[in-house]
Design a protein around this nucleic acid. Structure first.
Length: 506
DNA sequence: TCCACGGCATTGGATACGAG
DNA sequence: CTCGTATCCAATGCCGTGGA
């Protein structure tokens, strides 16, 4: 087995950024992880959650928006973005822990569009048979987390009726029959209306408030929204590409007109335009025909793809000639909500070693770089107050992050003198334009306190940038006299309240 | 008081463009 | 070439308003 196929990020939690996988590779990941036998992976209990794509949770991921990319290499979207409104599948390798909320439920090994999953695999078959045959589960995400206010990824987030849609679709799947040796990792041809992504999207659109629909329609825009593509990722991508090509064409036309162009028009005869080819994304390897049955005859055969295309699985012992349902139409139904099938015994998670937050699955193994340790959530509410370490080279990104953190501090009212001192330290490593940006975003009252503290520290002999190097006056000047007096009085009160012994000492 | 509705704000992704 | 910024667009959340 090829080592290094599933490389994790530095924290060992998530598949490496910008790494995308072929169908066969994903199947390997689901069925038997290359490192399954290693001690660090003993806790691995893979569950694929069918879920909503939550909004405003990028800060919860390890690598912001990179974490939530679709991991299928042949995803129709060249950017692999799973946009809000699309359904997705989360690869939760440690579901025994996340379900109990002992680990952060938003830190998963990876994600896929549900659209892509259904295009790449036989979802209906795998939901029923994977627990017994392959040792992983596929479940609708209906979880409630004890330590979360809500499950923003829940299938039922917007409408509880989504569960019924899922159940209905699942029941329909049980009517299907399969040839011997069927693995479920085949690509199948099914009309869109019979895909789960379509059923869920249609129900979602049917149940959404009129307001949302009206808002969508009245907004200026291209119209390539969910009510148009209805969850069809390929349609969305193609429409977007066509719009882009059209826009470029228009721009080119107008440029030519402005520059006295149009001379090479064919005698005024209107010719059908040829769309410009959409640029191929970089670093995307050209696949061999064997890897994609679409390239073989243009279409997947109406039946199923030969399991031989899944050559990698044969070596894993998951060629399903023995495991598959010998009696066509037989379906194995082990998966009511949140339960495990008979072949899946998920042990109770270890005791929680701390009152709050999440914990590492196996602290003893945390030192290993490949340990699947889930770090505490990178909550947006935890501002970094330290200055950027001087050992790291200063970059625009770091400066921006630092200035954002400082601005967050500055926005907290009222600011104390101690707080102002911390911010001054944090700003020291930043160049003037960054300091200006911080100050310009600060409330006038906070800027006033900062100015006062800097003046005091300079007078005490500290080597700080001169006060005039901070663009305070624009901010402080906005404070009227009465406001300044009020601020001063408030400040004194705060300082007294914080430390009565030290009051008046500043 | 509750609820539906409508408007606006926020957030995040994509992209073009410019600076270093 | 990389990184940062500005802008546009879509989805979603929040909040005010008015009617029952």
């Amino acid at each position: 087995m090829r080592r290094g196929l599933f490389v994790y990020d530095q924290r060992g939690t998530e598949l490496a950024q910008n790494k995308f996988y072929r169908r066969t590779e994903l199947a390997k990941f689901f069925v038997q992880h290359p490192d399954q036998q290693e001690p660090v992976r003993l806790h691995r209990r893979l569950t694929l959650w069918i879920q909503n794509t939550p909004a405003q949770l990028n800060t919860r991921y390890l690598n912001n928006s990179s974490s939530s990319k679709c991991r299928w290499r042949d995803c129709p979207d060249p950017t692999h973005t799973i946009q809000k409104g699309f359904w997705r599948v989360a690869f939760d390798e440690y579901s025994g822990h996340t379900t109990q909320n002992h680990t952060d439920p938003y830190l998963n090994a990876g994600y896929m569009h549900l659209y892509c999953f259904e295009k790449a695999f036989d979802l209906g078959y795998l939901i029923h048979h994977a627990p017994r045959d392959y040792g992983f589960r596929i479940l609708p995400d209906n979880r409630h987390f004890p330590r979360e206010e809500r499950n923003a990824a829940s299938l039922k987030r917007d409408h509880p009726e989504m569960s019924a849609v899922y159940e209905k679709w699942l029941n329909e799947q049980s009517q299907r029959s399969f040839p011997p040796g069927y693995t479920g990792f085949e690509q199948i041809n099914v009309p869109d209306k019979d895909r789960l992504w379509s059923r869920l999207t249609e129900e979602h659109l049917r149940r959404e408030s009129k307001t949302r629909d009206t808002t969508r329609k009245t907004r200026p825009g291209t119209g390539n929204h969910i009510a148009f593509h209805r969850g069809n990722l390929e349609m969305m991508v193609k429409t977007k590409q066509a719009e882009k090509a059209s826009k470029k064409r228009k721009n080119k036309d107008s440029d030519e007109e402005e520059g006295g162009g149009g001379s090479d028009d064919d005698e005024g005869v209107e010719q059908p335009r040829v769309e410009r080819p959409v640029p191929v994304p970089k670093k995307r390897r050209v696949e061999s025909p064997l890897e994609s049955p679409h390239r073989l005859g243009g279409l997947v055969s109406p039946g199923v793809e030969s399991p031989h295309h899944l050559g990698g699985l044969v070596g894993l012992g998951v060629n399903n000639t023995q495991l598959g349902p010998q009696a066509s139409g037989f379906f194995y139904y082990p998966v009511p909500d949140n339960s495990a099938g008979p072949s899946l015994h998920y042990p109770a998670p270890p005791a929680i070693p701390q009152q709050h937050g999440f914990y590492n699955i196996d602290p003893a193994l945390a030192a290993s770089s490949t340990t699947p340790v889930r770090p505490p959530p990178q909550g947006p509410s935890t501002p970094r107050l330290e200055p950027v370490p001087t050992s790291l080279p200063r970059t625009r990104k770091r400066s921006r992050e630092n200035s954002e953190d400082i601005n967050e501090r500055l926005s907290k009212k009222p600011m104390t003198r101690g707080g102002a001192d911390e911010i001054i330290v944090a700003m020291q490593n930043e160049p003037q334009h960054v300091r200006d940006r911080i100050i310009s975003a600060a409330p006038a009252s906070s800027a006033a306190i900062l100015k006062e503290r800097i003046q005091k520290r300079v007078l005490q002999g500290e080597t700080l940038p001169e006060v005039h190097e901070y663009d305070f006056d624009a901010r402080v000047g906005k404070l009227r006299t009465r406001e300044r007096l009020n601020l001063d009085a408030t400040l004194i009160k705060i300082e007294k309240h914080k430390d009565p012994k030290k009051n008046n000492s500043i």
